[in-house]
Design a protein around this nucleic acid. Structure first.
Lengths: 209, 209
DNA sequence: GTCTATAGAACGATAGAC
DNA sequence: GTCTATCGTTCTATAGAC
């Protein structure tokens, strides 16, 4: 059979299983079984299980990153100094767009991201590239202009807060419950709730006051 | 030797290794080696690796939960309707107190919580008890009185946001980098930044506006 | 490119001596 | 309670036929 086909089958199966069971909880056998391909195909097409994870992660991250970049471009074309709420929507929105609420695939993608972020293993740390760094830095600069009182450190802390809230919260759509907190969130409401919550958080006055 | 001693050695070693390598990434052998006890001791004292995780998690969670409870009691003794910022400080504060900034043990505890929250495996979901649910419900009620415009759903969403920000952000103190965002946070600053950020977020007007 | 077969190394759990 | 020894399983990775 055509090689691109086998490759794609493996990527699809791996994305699903890594999200559902984590990296270490997923065996190459489980992936190739679900993909309907031979066990040795992973080694042939990707080299190793860790490199397969990298390929899966990059396929997920790239469209999100591109949408964040495009959103910022759109804002900056309108005005050189966008409002905080618009910046939050442009940054957090793609995390919802690329993981449609109610859609099983979207919830799974969400789960995958948290699984990767939360895993302490070193293999999970090498899948962001210069494209992600560049977009993050552009948002930091834009937020910095909109919030002139904030130190660079506090600004970075807050941007990371956006990621934390969007990533952790979307988990429950796919998974029954995160301990210490409560029930699943109704689809599209989460997106609006998150923007409200995060726009207020980002707009808070500097702590050094 | 005395059994309580062996038990404690195992708990200490397991807490450290689960935080550093995750549940599946940690073998019983690695735990007993670090603890300086025999391989079979885990089976004898805890039954299985999964039950050991439960014991580790409960030992970490209980003092945090107790401090959250005491903090709310203290607020309510002063006034029946505490301010949002005070509620945020009482809820999020213990997450910092029990994981002192700059302290290696504190950062590790932080990492352990994220590791457990982020792991999709079912074994990681059975360690919260009625005590945690009760404290969460009391905070929900108090926040509900302070923010009368919010639906129960949005309120729960926001409380979960507090956990997301405190847990995810403290990770970087221990670990070099979380992709998509940036550099480590300076010790005690994180606590004040988090309270500022979260108090503003919690105080946001209802989304249904 | 796809497959079979297997090497080689871990793993969790436990039986049974002390 | 502590130990040794080991069973049975599962894993990743790869060699080599087709």
């Amino acid at each position: 059979m055509a090689s691109p086909d086998t490759r794609a089958q493996i990527l699809d199966a791996a994305e699903r299983l890594f999200a559902e069971r984590g990296f270490r909880g997923t065996s190459i056998r489980a992936i190739t079984d679900l993909a309907g391909v031979n066990l040795a195909a992973v080694g042939y097409h990707f080299g190793s299980k860790a490199e397969l994870l990298t390929a899966v992660a990059r396929r997920v991250v790239e469209p999100i990153n591109a949408a964040q970049r495009a959103g910022l471009d759109r804002l900056l074309a309108r005005t050189p100094d966008p409002a905080v709420a618009d910046l939050v929507a442009a940054f957090a929105g793609p995390l919802f767009d690329e993981m449609p609420a109610g859609d099983e695939q979207g919830a799974r993608t969400s789960r995958l991201i948290v699984t990767i972020l939360g895993d302490p293993a070193e293999e999970m740390r090498s899948w962001t590239g210069p494209a992600e760094d560049a977009v993050r830095d552009r948002y930091l600069a834009a937020f910095g202009r909109a919030l002139p009182g904030l130190s660079a450190g506090e600004l970075r802390f807050r941007l990371r807060g956006i990621l934390a809230v969007t990533a952790m919260d979307r988990v429950e759509v796919y998974q029954r419950q995160v301990p210490g907190c409560s029930s699943p969130v109704a689809g599209e409401a989460a997106r609006r709730w998150a923007i409200t919550f995060l726009a207020a958080a980002m707009s808070a006055p500097s702590t050094e006051a």
